[in-house]
């Protein structure tokens, strides 16, 4: 059974390698970021398989942390694309921005 786990894990690594290609290629920052997300999800998958293979289920905690923090980088990315770092990417009409500017702080 453990050989099977490793086989699937190796397969996942290859998909990760494919995602790396997209990180390199771009061209949009969004492309790179999404590819990184795939590496994150794939990494979680690999770790689950490693846990099953070794029988050391404490490894699940690593997957848990990775899954929890996976979104963090993407949010930081989205935030960092706003000029001043603030704002919601959903406010993408100029009117929204204008009304927000006028709002009292």
């Amino acid at each position: 059974m453990s050989s099977w786990y490793l086989l699937v894990a190796t397969g996942l690594l290859l998909t990760i390698a494919g995602a790396l290609w997209r990180v390199w290629r771009g061209p949009e920052q969004a492309d790179r970021m999404m590819a990184a997300q795939l590496v994150g999800t794939g990494g979680v998958g690999v770790i689950l398989l490693l846990a099953a293979m070794s029988g050391d289920w404490a490894m699940l905690d690593v997957a848990l942390v990775l899954a929890l923090l996976a979104a963090l980088a993407a949010i930081a990315f989205v935030k960092s694309t706003r000029g001043e770092g603030e704002g919601d990417p959903e406010d993408d009409t100029p009117e929204d921005r204008a009304s927000e500017d006028g709002a009292p702080r």
Partner: peptide
């Protein structure tokens, strides 16, 4: 995470 970030990144 993937659902939310996909939406956000799509907006960007």
């Amino acid at each position: 995470a993937a659902g939310a970030t996909a939406q956000l990144v799509a907006r960007i």
